[in-house]
Every structure is written in C-alpha cells, then in structure tokens.
Write a protein that binds this DNA or RNA. Structure first.
Lengths: 225, 225
DNA sequence: TTAATCATAAAAATCGATAATTAAGAAGAA
DNA sequence: TTCTTCTTAATTATCGATTTTTATGATTAA
C-alpha cells in the first residue's frame, strides 16, 4: 500500500531512499559515476543532502567513493555475486536454525501470511505496478523467515546481504524467468519446512533457492554479455 | 607505525576516521548526543563534512540518527553485547572453517607473524602508547585469521562485528584485566589450531576466546554499574 | 496546582557560493 | 609522431549563512 508514502521528514533521508531504490532496481547502472550536480537536479534536492545520502550508501556497499573523485555506483562482477550468494546462504542458514529453535507462534503466523501474499501476487497477471508490490512482498517474506531467530544482529546482516543480492537479480531481470518456474513452489517449501520446524530441510531449501536464483542470473548475464 | 599518519585527503574522511576512533575507544560515550557545531569546533572541520562523516557511521552501526533530531552515539546494552558476541562467534566460525579449507601459505605466514607481534607487545610493560599499538595488532591478528577464507564478504562482516565488539571491550577497559590472564595464551591456541588446520579446534577456541572476553566485560560492567 | 498555549532560544537541515582538486585538451619540445 | 607541460573547464569538497524544526521556559486559563 504505502510504497514511499511515508514521506520521510528530511530531504537527506528521501534522497537516501530514492538512491538506494534506484540502485537496487538498476535504474542507476553499476560503475556509473554519480555526479552531485546531476543528481541534485534529478531529485530536486540540494547538493549537501545528496552527498550525505551517498555517504550513507557507501558503508551499505551500494556506492563507492574515492576522495576527491566523487561517488560511483558499486560495480558488479560474477565473482562478487558468487561470494555474496555463498555468504548469504551460510548466514541465512545460521539464522534459520536459530529461528527453528527460538521462533514463537507470532513468527509462524508472520511467515505464513507473508508466504500467502507472495503466492497470491505471483498468480496474478504481470504488470509494472505488480512487480513493485511483488518485490516488497518478496523482501518481507525473506525477512519474516529469518526474523524468528531473535537475534537483531543476524537479521541486520541478512538484510544487508539481501539488498546486495536483490540488485543483481534486478540487473539480470530474472524475476521474469523465475515466474512460473519452481520458484513459487520454492517459497512454499521454505514456509512448510519452517512450520514443520525442520531445520535441516530449511537449510537445504534456502541453499537451493538462493543457488538457483544465482545460477539463473549468471546464465542470463553470460548470454547478454 | 603510522597511526593516523596517512593523513587522508578529504576532511570528511578525516572526520570519519577520528569519530570512529573516538567512539570505539570510548572517548565519546554511548548515547551521547553528537551536536554538529560542537564537533565542528572540536575537530576544526566544517559542519557539512562532520554531517557527512556521521552519516557514514550510521550504517556502520556506531552512530544513530533520527530525522530532525540529529545524531547520537549508538547506545550499548547487555543484550546487544550478548547478541553481538553470539553472532560474531557464528560468523567467525564460518570464516575459520573456510580458511582452514582454502587458506594458503601466505595466510599461514600472516597469521603467525601477527600472532608473534601481538605476543611480543603483551610481554612488554604497559604504557599508553603501547595500548594503541596493541589494539592495532590485536585487530590485525583477528583479521588475519579470517582473511584466509577467501570470501571478501565474510571478511567484511567480521570486520563490522569486530569494531562493534571492540567498543564494548574498551568501554569496560577489559584489556587491563585480560593481560596476564590466559588470553595471551588464547591467541597462541588460535594460531596453533590454524597451523594444524584443525577446524574444530579453531571453532572451539574462537568461541572460548570471544565468550571469555564478553564474560569479563559483563562482569566488569555489572560491578561498575 | 495542572495543563495548555505561546514566545524564545537552540539546534538541525538545507542552500548557494567559494575554494580546491582533478580531468581534458591544446601547445610546444624531443 | 609521441611525450611533456601548461591552460582551461568541469567537478568535488568545503564553508558560511539562511531556513526550518525542535526543545525550553514563561504565561495564562482551568
């Protein structure tokens, strides 16, 4: 419902959110130079606020900066994608094992409802608007799964890695290919394993899920290169 | 040798490094409000650069910001310390298992030399200057251990968690208590296990090492509260 | 007294302009 | 031509001033 409705107070935060969004969605290409003045005009926000927003994104790993040479969108590479995926698989597995052990009823409910919303969105005819909604729902589903672990830091790490991965997926426009494939089913498997409190099954499922997505991205990228 | 010698080009970066240092060392207390003007005078750097530096520290988790209410040093709590430690143990274990599998000769050499420097520093009489050197060496030793994993992202996560943990240690001034204890020996055990390529022993050792340090911090904090 | 309203002071956020630095291209020497 | 060196243009980094927002404290009504 509320995409960017919650119009954040400060311009810096607005710039931060829009830049983050545009980088993750691929509207700003990897390695692209981010000229302050150009961004300032594009977003109708002063240079100071833009710089501050970019600075926040640097530690996030979506933007790089070199002193006296300005900012660039973080580059992408097959190597990084593979490393990112492997790291993310391990960290999420860690989180999921904890979630199986610590997750309460609220967690179960959250996972189920997120899974349901996601599957409903996937069964509808594709449209530009739907993609946005799907992306939000997809993010929430994955966050819901790990949220049961009860460890704020673990969740934070998962979120960080998710955002980075998400950009790769968008750059390859894999969601189109994924649709109709066994990915929808994949989410169901994850949710079921969570309900069954089967940690091993969950770990296997997440590994397959992330691994498959990455494989598709790599193939897609190879062919378009 | 070069503490902050490598006088970075931009004032923003300088401010970033000094603020990060001052927060980790505890010179800026947890939850303390960070008033722009005050910092601007303290570091003799304009408000814009200060704000930018603080923004970078936000995603790092050392500073918090609330729109229209400015910045504060991230608060501390027993709960966060425990969560942080548990998360860090798991992530480092993940890294160490990879390092045992992938680490090359260069890795072994690095670990050994860092361990040696550390132990030498620990055998010398304590002084203000030595503490700084020890802190650098300690950081490098831990980074060396995980660096063998060959996964940039895993290393990045370890570094993030290290910095956060380091602050807790400094706030409790545990290094004084640790000295002469079996912590020096602990580092030796870690290095030995790495050389022996004994992943299980390494994991056990890192868990004990981090766990013990945290235990000391919690006790220290409890008594001083 | 207590709560609410308003006025004032303090601080954060933002802008526009300036200084410093780098990149690009032209002119001249080998 | 090819490589320097210099000049100019573009861009980043930085500052000081202005605007906006929040916090503080006083004043008044209940």
């Amino acid at each position: 419902m509320d995409l960017i409705t919650a119009s954040s107070r400060s311009l810096t935060t607005q710039a931060f959110e829009r830049l983050q969004h545009d980088i993750i969605r691929g509207h700003l290409a990897p390695s692209e130079r981010l000229r302050i003045q150009a961004l300032s005009e594009r977003y109708q926000i002063g240079a100071t606020a833009i710089r501050e927003a970019l600075s926040r994104l640097v530690t996030e790993g979506l933007v790089e900066s070199e002193d006296q040479r300005g900012f660039t969108v973080a580059p992408v590479s097959r190597e990084e994608l593979l490393d990112l995926t492997q790291t993310r698989i391990k960290v999420e597995q860690m989180a999921l094992r904890l979630a199986v052990a610590n997750g309460d009823l609220e967690w179960e409910t959250l996972v189920l409802s997120c899974c349901h919303r996601l599957s409903r969105l996937e069964s509808q005819p594709w449209s530009e608007e739907l993609v946005s909604n799907w992306m939000v729902a997809h993010r929430q589903f994955h966050e819901a799964l790990v949220s049961g672990c009860g460890s704020p830091w673990t969740v934070k790490l998962c979120r960080l890695l998710y955002d980075k991965s998400e950009r790769y997926r968008n750059l390859a426009a894999v969601e189109v290919k994924e649709r109709g494939r066994n990915v929808t089913n994949n989410h169901k498997i994850l949710a079921d394993a969570a309900m069954a409190r089967d940690a091993d099954a969950l770990c296997r499922a997440i590994e397959e899920h992330l691994g498959l997505t990455t494989k598709l991205i790599v193939e897609q990228t190879k062919s378009s290169k």
